[in-house]
Design a protein around this nucleic acid. Structure first.
Length: 575
RNA sequence: CGGGGCGUAGCGCAGCCUGGUAGCGCGCCUGCUUUGGGAGCAGGAUGUCAGGUGUUCGAAUCACCUCGCCCCGACCA
């Protein structure tokens, strides 16, 4: 493509509302424009990158045995009522009415539609398994769109749904998608990690998020320095600590102390001159309307997802003042396990604690030298806290560390949540009716592109990994008014085009500096500079965007030089 | 939903407090010079000052309302 004819409006200034680097660069590089909050247009350069990602996804999905479909974006309310999500989904679901006053929504995801499709056409085990996918625009009316295309309302997504006859088949489908996702993100040239994720109330332990490492990422990822263990913060397990040798002989006499208006761990710690590690924090939760006390060491935090899963609760929130008063007999800030009349569970962190401090369930009092077994009882000890850097790895002897990441993909074993609600059934060999087992697998397309930029940029702009680059090469004649220079540039451009290389000829009547700046900004991996001095010696310059390395090449051999570099780059991502 | 901020030329901003004919930089157009890292000089075009109502002789500026956008928090996959 000739630059002079391209719609490629680059900009020097950073738009005032662009916060993250990928958003700034995508706007400056002429890839996207914001239409309104959380809704973007893709310009030619941006859309080319989108299509690169989509193409890689298509190839790997097809290879994994999935088949592409295209489902409607506008969906009738009935389907959502059938799955129960019409009322459950909340305001993220954009609802509207047609001229006949019927309710519809814009699809934020397509479980209902696909389940409806499959239940109508699949009747027998002979038609299973099936894996159908689509690349579609989704709409989620996000509470707060931000970070450009990373968290927006209208966005492109690849979503796949698998249907299997039994658990073993569903697991195989899941494994296939897991492998496909690894192939996809590796081929995109991204530094990523699959991490174990919480599968929530749907059940089953099969859920992985694919995270691209980036400091600007919204999610905290926990990983082991030594083994391959990685999980998101919600899910991150903590190994049960070794039991220490403590006997009842070590127990001191229980003491009640007056602590007027001393409530928080910091206040208690300062007032009684004890470290937070010697205090047991007692949190009262409201689990499906019933109070439950959770004990944890004073310096640590409760992971509510773990508590929720442990209790098997549908809803879990911190108890309100009224429930706390009823459960403990004291206002907020003085709860403790001694004499409490509600269910008590404890994090592993308190298992080895002796002679600790805790609330007295009495306003303005705390207890010292409390010991579990003598002064209070605990239903059980469990892993209920938020992981911290330095924790032991739950899988090996290694140590846990944290990084930040951007979630670009999610594979999820759904089980029968939708197939049951919507009666997606088949007849097995014995003629018995059975419910299909589903999985769903998503990839955020725009988010993948943004994540790639977050990982590949410098002060001059984007640095595309070759597989996602909108163009591979830009040929830059330093001055188009010098006939020899321009002729040589045209010649190289023509040869590259003939070889099927995606190439831009920067034929604009601009100064060299302007062309270099634009080429760097839009991140084209290879630049061939044609200048009068080098040309006179039979040379052109080949510059590598990523390394900044620049070499002189024979004018006649430049095409094969370019192809060599392209081949070796390709080898890196396809092994 | 709670709190805060912003809205003036395509982009980035000043002007507003203290009311009096709309400004700067970049970009854009024309000409000359220049030509390997966002050139120089000269000339030029561009505005519903977000919208509405009010106060005033007079409103970008003051008051009230509406809309849009952004940030922090809560929420969600």
């Amino acid at each position: 493509m000739r630059y002079s004819a391209m719609h490629l409006p680059t900009g020097r200034e950073v738009p005032s509302d662009a916060e993250v680097i990928s958003n700034q660069l995508m706007i400056r590089a002429g890839m996207i424009r914001k239409l309104t909050s959380g809704i973007f247009s893709y310009l030619p350069l941006g859309y080319r990158v989108i299509r690169k990602v989509e193409q890689i996804i298509r190839e790997e999905m097809d290879k994994a045995g999935a088949q592409e479909v295209h489902l409607p974006m506008v969906q009738p309310a009935e389907l959502w009522q059938e799955s129960g999500r019409w009322t459950f989904y909340g305001k993220e679901l954009l609802r509207f009415r047609d001229r006949n006053d019927r309710d519809y929504c814009l699809g934020p995801t397509h479980e209902e539609v696909i389940t409806d499709l499959v239940r109508n056409d699949i009747k027998t085990y002979r038609q299973l398994p099936r894996n159908l996918y689509q690349i579609q625009t989704k709409f989620r009316d996000e509470v707060r769109p931000r970070f450009g295309v990373m968290r927006c309302r209208e966005f492109g997504m690849k979503d796949a749904y698998s249907f299997d006859a039994d658990e073993a088949g569903a697991e195989k489908s899941y494994e296939r998608m897991f492998t496909a996702y690894n192939n996809i993100f590796r081929r995109c040239g991204l530094e990523y990690r699959p991490v174990e994720a919480d599968s929530g109330s749907i059940g089953g332990s099969f859920s992985h998020e694919f995270m691209v490492m980036a400091d600007s990422g919204e999610d905290a990822i926990v990983f082991c320095e030594q083994c391959r263990y990685a999980a998101n913060l919600e899910k991150a397990e903590i190994a049960r600590p070794e039991k220490t040798n403590v006997t009842e002989k070590d127990w001191l006499t229980l003491e009640s102390v007056e602590t007027p208006d001393v409530r928080t761990i910091e206040e208690v710690s300062a007032f009684l001159n004890v470290s937070p590690q010697q205090i047991v924090k007692t949190l009262i939760f409201n689990a499906d309307g019933k109070p439950c006390a959770v004990l944890i060491r004073g310096d640590q935090n409760v992971n509510e997802v773990k508590v929720k899963n442990y209790l098997g609760a549908a809803e879990l929130e911190m108890a309100d003042d009224e429930m706390i008063l009823k459960a403990t007999g004291a206002p907020r800030g003085f709860a403790g396990a001694v004499g409490i009349k509600v269910r008590v569970i404890a994090d592993y962190s308190v298992e080895n604690m002796v002679n600790f401090v805790t609330g007295a369930n009495r306003q303005d009092y705390h207890l010292k030298n409390v010991n579990i077994g003598r002064d209070c009882q605990v239903e059980s000890f469990a892993d209920l806290r938020v992981s911290e850097p330095g924790d032991p790895c739950p899988r090996c002897a290694g140590t846990i560390r944290f990084v930040r990441g951007i979630e670009v993909g999610h594979v999820f074993k759904l089980g029968t949540k939708y197939s049951k609600a919507m009666k997606a059934v088949y007849l097995d060999k014995d003629g018995k009716e059975k419910t299909m087992i589903m999985g769903c697998y998503g990839i955020g397309i725009g988010r993948t592109v943004a994540a790639c930029i977050e990982q590949n940029y410098d002060e001059n702009g984007i640095i595309w990994p070759m597989p996602l680059a909108p163009y591979t090469v830009i040929v830059t004649p330093v001055n188009i008014n010098e006939p020899d220079v321009m002729k040589a540039a045209e010649d190289i451009y023509g040869q590259l085009l003939a070889c099927g290389v995606e190439v831009i000829l920067d034929d604009r009547d601009e100064r060299a500096g302007v062309k270099f700046k634009d080429a760097d900004l839009i991140g084209i991996p290879l630049r061939v500079v044609v200048g009068p001095k080098n040309l006179a010696q039979g040379h052109v310059e080949l510059k590598i965007r990523k390394t900044g390395e620049s070499r002189l090449c024979e004018t006649g051999g430049i095409v094969s030089d370019v192809q060599k570099i392209m081949d070796s780059e390709l080898k890196k991502v396809c092994g």
